[in-house]
Design a protein around this nucleic acid. Structure first.
Lengths: 368, 368
DNA sequence: AATTAGCACTCACAAGGAAAGAGTGCTAAC
DNA sequence: GTTAGCACTCTTTCCTTGTGAGTGCTAATT
């Protein structure tokens, strides 16, 4: 990941105290910092390139437009600003946004109204995980006005805690698998050969004995053939059971994504261009790209921000992604993400996501 | 529903044989029919108002543009054509489309390639209903290039066939409900009071005895209090069981919708206007409107078409909806819909949907 | 009587050009 | 070091004008 802290050009600019006793907050200079902040703030708010006179009029920097122009030219040379064309104002570059996020932006404070609204929206009554997650996606997208992506919780070291076979009728069984995640998954399995309570119970016990406590990697071939040999006539059935167990344990299992608010983005002027809008919306049909994007910074404890090219996916290089993990019980971790234009209201998005993920953690703590 | 057959203006125009031995195919006249067909075909294909000279050049009607103009004026008077402005060509009105769909359009023939592609895409390996339905939505949207909506199958007279409680641990049970739909639903239920195998088995038997064969309406208060009295200390648990049973049986249960290809529509010129695109895409966030739209013509056996204002939902009056039921087993019925602009390739959409639903029925027949 | 040629008229749209406006960078003065 | 002033650039907007597609009507033709 490319961040302000390891980018070669920025490394030397990290806040430092000058020797002479004067606090120079930063290598790029205090005045430039204020100016850059003003420019990014203004651009985030108004979506229009910011000119030197605009700065003079809107922000009290006590400088003339000519001075601002000189400073802007410096900031452009440093790589923090871009110019769409000669006679437009400046817009922040990816680096500019990065510097802004790291050390310029003011922390957003959620208003009382916002907090109350979020709290009440997050009092989720649903029982099923998928309903909870889809509600969370809705809440995030409404709170931020960007697209929200939520991914199902998974855990890396998942073992089988319990297996049960419940007879439904003579040719169908319900296979119930309890994993160490605390998740309970079930699937109906059809058997060509008739089944009954006693064989189901016997099978249940046998399977439990052989498989309990095992992870996906520790189920060996000998275990499998052992089980197969015990039930020679139920070959088909056993195969189906293995397949389902594998799905339950597989780390890269087909985690469901929950999306919301993808069309929010059409409200932002940068997507008035129908092709840009289409490109953005098409992202959300490509689940694999989203999943990989959500895998970024997997060890982070809190919110991470990926601005444009910093993303690990080529397809996201025009967008910013704000990512936060959440915990569902002891071991399970999922992620919530916000996707929007690089011109994003970072401070509000970050704080909202922090708040929401805190609430989610509480919610799941109660549930598990 | 307003169709060509009961619309007051059109009623008199239904095909009829003239007395004199000459076959006058239709009250509006053979020539006008051909012309209308040409205009609608052309407009569906090119998305541009059709002028009299265009018709002369592209279609061999053997008439001069002046004659065509006269005929067009007639068709406009009859309500089949609209004019965007004086010097544009004509476009079909809702009534024009309706007449076209009812008696003008040529049946589309799926090519060998299309059939092969559909067949292979519909060889769905998934086990879970939701995966199957979401794949179906994908197939429909890819086949037609419009948005696809699939709704879960439900049945109106659903009774409880079986109930099982499986002990997971001392405070959780898996409740399994088998309904006459052939669906098996399960949910984990937490109990404050500890549970064990024997109480679970007893409860399972008691519940089965009291509730088996009952529909939602035939579960009476006395049955409920009967059960409550039998397990005074498990009041909470019983409440949760009832709640889940109710959900399983409720006709208007929260049927899941599966969407796909909503952004396909951005490829059509009528949605180059960002506001139109937004309005269209916003539809798919309003599940209740979609559900009501899919409830139209509930008794139809085959494909139905709703053009613009014919839809029961105000929000759909600019769009056309093509709807087909599918069967999942004996009693379960779901619906598949295509939503797109009124300028839709009706013949292809209808035939594709027919074909796909046929395949779906076969698929589910095998599964149940 | 039906069809068509001819023509005047309408309207949207594209191309071209001028003017306005926002902004820059440089120089010279403060 | 800061700023006023100015020439210059480039986009955007607004007009104008011309073109083309299309209509509807009338009179001539079949």
């Amino acid at each position: 990941m490319l961040t302000i802290n390891n980018h070669p050009r920025i490394k030397s600019l990290i806040p430092q105290i000058a020797k002479k006793g004067v606090v120079i907050v930063d290598g790029i200079g205090d005045r430039k910092r204020l100016l850059l902040q003003a420019i990014v703030d203004d651009y985030i708010k108004n979506a229009e390139p910011v000119g030197s006179r605009t700065i003079v009029k809107r922000y009290e920097l006590g400088l003339s437009s000519a001075t601002i122009r000189n400073e802007m030219a410096d900031l452009e040379d440093m790589g923090f600003l871009d110019k769409p064309h000669t006679s437009a104002g400046r817009i922040p570059s990816h680096l500019g946004y990065r510097y802004y996020v790291n050390s310029l932006m003011q922390r957003y404070h959620l208003s009382q109204t916002e907090i109350e609204r979020l709290s009440s929206e997050l009092e989720i009554q649903a029982h099923e995980l998928k309903q909870i997650l889809s509600t969370i996606a809705d809440v995030v997208s409404r709170a931020t006005n960007y697209a929200a992506v939520v991914i199902e919780p998974t855990s890396s070291d998942c073992v089988i805690n319990d297996i049960k076979l419940v007879v439904i009728d003579s040719h169908s069984l319900l296979l119930v698998v309890v994993t160490s995640d605390g998740l309970i998954k079930s699937r109906v399995i059809k058997s060509d050969i008739p089944v009954n309570e006693s064989i189901a119970n016997y099978m249940t016990n046998f399977l439990c004995e052989k498989l309990k406590g095992l992870s996906r990697d520790s189920v060996t071939l000998s275990t499998l053939s052992n089980i197969h040999n015990e039930f020679p006539q139920y070959h088909e059935l056993i195969m189906l059971i293995f397949k389902f167990l594998d799905e339950c344990l597989k780390e890269s299992r087909n985690e469901q994504l929950y999306l919301s608010g993808t069309i929010n983005v059409l409200n932002y002027p940068e997507y008035n261009d129908i092709d840009k809008a289409k490109a953005f919306l098409a992202l959300f049909d490509k689940k694999d790209i989203l999943k990989k994007a959500l895998e970024q910074d997997n060890n982070a404890k809190g919110v991470s921000v990926f601005i444009g090219v910093e993303n690990n996916q080529e397809e996201l290089k025009e967008y910013s992604l704000i990512l936060s993990p959440y915990k569902a019980g002891e071991k399970l971790r999922g992620k919530v993400a916000i996707i929007g234009p690089t011109r994003m209201h970072y401070s509000k998005a970050i704080v909202s996501l922090e708040y929401i993920c805190g609430k989610i953690n509480q919610l799941f703590e109660k549930l598990f």
